[in-house]
Write a protein that binds this DNA or RNA. Structure first.
Lengths: 210, 210, 210, 210
DNA sequence: CTGTAATCGAGACGGTACGTCGGGTCTTATA
DNA sequence: TATAAGACCCGACGTACCGTCTCGATTACAG
């Protein structure tokens, strides 16, 4: 999470004042607030420090820069996504798509996600951080959805190269929703969700029959 | 393209030195070169002016800022996408997906596209500019593909709400490819393209049967 | 005075906005005001810029740093020293010593002079600047005093190595007054001035008799 | 010397770990070394602490700040000045002037002395510290010189207001040498010393005849 | 021996200033 | 009027020191 992963116990040394754990929370909260008010490009490290009641140096001691800080601040929001059992694969997918769309509508997410991805195209460690903290963690939703559907008999059990298919489905779902919400900038409403889910399920069904 | 759409002859005035048409091209070329070398976040107006052999004033007289300039510089690259007739809907889709992925691999596109989209979440005019110059223009590819497939009899003729479906397909294709290439950061290789196209076509076929 | 000596016409170029001449004056005045209020060590470039109604970059475009700026700001004060004809060498010396002591009592001078001299011990260009702008310029006072005394017949005409003697006398007068005022930190009152002048004149007279 | 004069036994308390006496010496030595390498303005408390193998806290527990620390570190060097009996007043003066000039040539003295004096113009306790530890202590040299000259019969016995004259002579000698060495930045060589001493003795002789 | 109390090193902390950089505006002379 | 040049104001950057603080770990002397 920080430059050195755990707030306490870094570098093996014993002495020294330990890092404030409260500061971490205050900083991340302040970062999200600043994203909401100012957006990515007008967010400044100094402003975040001020909001968090913390010195600028404290920020830089823990995060290498704005990119890393924002990734950490936003990542936790993605962990709130859930996949409640709604009885059918279609309902499960619709549920998670709606949740995901709602998350992308939140101003802090909307302004930050594309920005850090843009930065990550020229910053390999940042890309890795995004993958670890955001992308890979959410694949659990696809995994859970597939396993539940298999348990229900909606999908055949463990097809070959399930991982590859999971990844494909993840890219399709996440990509389509992000593109609809942020690029096309049109609402992810019930109608769209239904049509998208139908398209996806149709594709999955066709694949199962092959 | 510029603040006042046509490079020369704006504001109806008669006298005065006309704007250099060469400068426009030089600036956009310089912008793309700077994107390649520096990426979005390190590209500066001063640097672009220097590369183009132009004063900073000249840039600001024609573009409102970095965002608008980069959108214009990158938009033209998307117009190079084509949909050659490869004999079947599947081959057509695979062809355009491969082209699109190749475009997203180019460093100037990769770094700029996500960045301007991120900016556009807080800048309505910029969003409109992106839609007009980039997004909407490429929907022609979906339209052409659908019409060609209908002509071939691969798809039923003009289903209800064809526009909505076109938009959905556009979001799915563009979104999935972008997500695969930039977010998941994994290669859009022949295998992935084939699996993705199969999924999409399966969905379209299932929809057609309904 | 500035990084490039004359405000206009630097680097041979013709184009570009010329440097503001008013800014120079405002900055030097602001520097003196800041010295009075804050003293040398608490004077900051940002504060001076603020007082002068000027951007920090404008300061740095013209002066390399605090040292150079303060030397320039203070140098002009030393040029106010005069040597009015008071009728005798003794009276002339007493007059200039009193003036010099008064100058050293001014808060801007007091706090700045020793500081820049201290810095100059590790900064050859700065030392040269101090010599050129402050030290050497004031030797005119010694020169004028000697010539006037010679005209009066108080001193023998053009003794050998007059320059060396002038320098010695300059070091003795300036050094003694500075030491009394700033190091011993005791008042340069009429009594002290009289005793010091008597000592100096005695020495000069003894030398003349040799 | 320290905040509480003696390294050990402060505040009357009985218990507790006593302060390390070695640390004091190490810190002052480190301070002088840092002055030599870095000069006054680039010397930092952290750096001194590092050189001395001591925590920054330890420095601040003993000295109020950089100024006080440097005064203490440098003061001891001035105590090395001596006035060996060289047989005549002129030789005695020349001897002490040469010694003093040599001291001012040492890099730690050169950079520190003017700096702390500059600071002292805005810091009364610091000025007092300098007077006590450096200035007043060296007046012993003038006193000794005068008494020895009187014993030799070179000067009349105890003239009225001897103290005032001692102070005057101290300011003249110290001031002239400092000015020559640090402001004029020219060498205090044998020739200059001889001419300066002659001037001073001439003045003293003239005063004696009055 | 065992507290008690002040020391020690380490290093994080809230601040302030640094000197630089980029944004976007302006003021020149020239074309 | 547009242009190249470049000075201008502004605000953010990331760093360096400041002087304070909070740790766990030593010392010493007092009981």
């Amino acid at each position: 999470m920080c430059i050195s992963s755990s707030p306490s116990r870094r570098r093996g040394g014993t002495g020294g004042r330990p890092r404030s754990a409260e500061a971490d929370a205050a900083i991340l909260t302040a970062t999200r607030a600043a994203l909401v008010e100012l957006g990515w490009s007008k967010l400044t490290m100094g402003d975040v420090a001020g909001r968090a009641g913390v010195a600028k140096t404290t920020l830089y001691r823990r995060w290498a820069g704005k990119n890393e800080l924002v990734v950490d601040a936003v990542a936790v929001l993605f962990d709130e996504l859930e996949l409640p059992d709604r009885g059918s694969l279609m309902a499960d997918i619709e549920g998670v798509v709606v949740q995901f769309a709602a998350l992308l509508e939140r101003p802090e997410t909307k302004t930050a996600l594309m920005a850090v991805i843009a930065e990550s195209t020229r910053d390999e460690p940042l890309r890795e951080r995004i993958r670890t903290l955001i992308v890979e963690r959410q694949k659990r939703l696809v995994l859970a959805g597939r396993e539940r559907a298999q348990a229900r008999g909606e999908l055949p059990a463990s097809p070959a190269s399930a991982t590859g298919t999971d990844d494909l489905i993840f890219d399709v779902i996440a990509g389509a929703v992000v593109h609809r919400a942020l690029v096309s900038a049109e609402p992810v409403d019930a109608d769209w969700v239904q049509r998208f889910t139908a398209l996806l399920l149709g594709g999955l069904g066709a694949a199962a029959r092959t």
